[in-house]
C-alpha cells in the first residue's frame, strides 16, 4: 500500500472535496475577471487599481490565490503519482511544483498589498 504522505490533506476524500471547493472559487473568479475585462474595454489604470484596492476584491483575490495553490497541488500531485514512477524524479517534480505554488501565492499577496 502506498502511504500518501504527500497528498494535500493526507486523505483522499479531503483532497477530493478541496479540489472541488477550490474549483468553484477559481471558476467564479474566472467568470468575474473575464466579464469585467469584456465589459470594460477602455479600462484605465485608476479603475483597475481601484478595483484591487477594494476590500471585497482583495478577499476574493486572496481566496483565489489560495485556491490556485490547493487546486494545482492536488492536480499536479495526482498527475505526478500517475506518470512519474521513479521516487527521486517524482520527489523532484513535486518539490518544484510546491515551490512554484508557494512563489505564486507570495507574489500575488505582494502585488495585492504592495499597492
Amino acid at each position: 500500500m502506498v502511504t500518501q504522505i504527500t497528498s494535500f490533506g493526507r486523505s483522499g476524500l479531503y483532497d477530493w472535496m478541496m479540489q472541488r471547493v477550490s474549483a468553484i472559487v477559481l471558476s467564479l473568479y474566472t467568470v468575474f475577471i473575464l466579464g469585467y475585462l469584456v465589459m470594460n474595454p477602455d479600462l484605465t489604470y485608476d479603475q483597475w487599481s481601484a478595483l484591487f484596492e477594494a476590500t471585497w476584491m482583495r478577499i476574493f483575490t486572496l481566496m483565489t490565490l489560495l485556491s490556485i495553490g490547493v487546486h494545482s497541488w492536488i492536480g499536479l500531485w495526482s498527475i505526478s503519482t500517475d506518470y512519474l514512477k521513479a521516487t527521486g524524479v517524482r520527489f523532484f517534480f513535486q518539490s518544484l511544483c510546491g515551490l512554484a505554488m508557494f512563489v505564486y501565492i507570495t507574489w500575488g499577496i505582494q502585488v495585492l498589498w504592495g499597492l
Binding site: Y45, W48, S49, F52, I68, S72, G75, L76, I79, C97, A100, Y104, W107, G108, Q110, V111, L115
Partner: peptide
C-alpha cells in the same frame, strides 16, 4: 490534465502581467 499543466506554467505570465499592471 494537459490544460491543467499548461495553466500552472501559464500562471507565471499571468502573475507577471498582474504585477506590472498594478505597479504603476
Amino acid at each position: 490534465r494537459v490544460t491543467g499543466v499548461i495553466l500552472f506554467v501559464g500562471l507565471a505570465f499571468l502573475f507577471y502581467a498582474f504585477d506590472l499592471s498594478l505597479d504603476s
